[in-house]
Design a protein around this nucleic acid. Structure first.
Lengths: 148, 148
DNA sequence: TTTTGTGCAAAACCTTTGCAAGCTA
DNA sequence: TAGCTTGCAAAGGTTTTGCACAAAA
């Protein structure tokens, strides 16, 4: 079976591995759709509430199970900001990083080409095969600094 | 009162702000001592177990409260690796970053001078005052790749 | 029809909090 | 002594799991 799971979930047909019989359900389609339309960085509970508006019988455990599957398939990425819970965003072509305001919680994304070089340098020096690079910068945005 | 809290906790007398009457207790001294001697990256439970060997009546909530105080005073930093709980390490002079093996969990520290420039660039472009920069690289170390 | 996924409820974790008793300054 | 800190136990928040029923292939 060479079906592309992602395609049936409404994606662009990104090739996913480990396709060992997972099924395309209305819940999974809905959840991935919301993640794709969102500006990113949803946490499980936000996703749950958004999805519940369209499918009221949805349960939170389905959300967690779907996120775990998407993560495993490489469709979404889990982010660990300075909070107790995780945030999720759809994986994109271009690697990007995060700038988080400690005052208002706003998250700004940025790209920084030098991280490519950093990965190469560190990989060579430490003998690692590096799969992910995440840079988080924390500080205060202009508005929050004014309010101080 | 110009006592330096950190000094009485066995440190080098790093100046700490917000010194509004906190007390130096045997528990706090013990916990900071363990953090300082450790290779870093302890989580609350590991710290608790290590400390309990020396002071069996210690409670886990004291550990959390001490970590929260140390964090507030800038003596330790909280790290968010790809796990559900946090890790803590003593703040050091030199900024450094982390390379984590997804296979065995090993954490390797590295320094990378270009992050200084990245902070400046991003700070200028986004109007942020940046306080922390953390770079996490994930992948597989040499040994774990051989075992695959 | 077989196998996987869902919803519900309960459990498992990690972390925080309320309170009486203990300790520090 | 006054006020901060502790230990204990209980509560809070997030994530996982067991199980019977529902849905997909």
């Amino acid at each position: 079976m060479l079906l592309i799971f992602d395609y049936y979930l409404g994606g662009n047909g990104i090739m996913v591995e480990k396709l060992k019989g997972q099924r395309v359900t209305s819940q999974r389609r809905l959840l991935l759709d919301i993640l794709r339309r969102s500006e990113g960085h949803l946490d499980a509970d936000e996703l749950y509430r958004l999805a519940k508006e369209r499918e009221p019988r949805l349960s939170l455990s389905t959300v967690y199970r779907a996120l775990s599957l998407f993560k495993e398939l490489g469709l979404v990425e889990e982010r660990h900001f300075a909070e107790e819970h995780h945030h999720y965003e759809v994986k994109r072509e271009r690697e990007h990083h995060h700038l988080i305001c400690l005052g208002c919680g706003k998250v700004i994304e940025f790209e920084y080409p030098l991280t490519k070089r950093m990965k190469e340098d560190v990989s060579r020096q430490c003998g690692f095969e590096i799969l992910n690079a995440s840079v988080s910068l924390e500080g205060y945005c202009e508005r929050c600094r004014e309010e101080h």
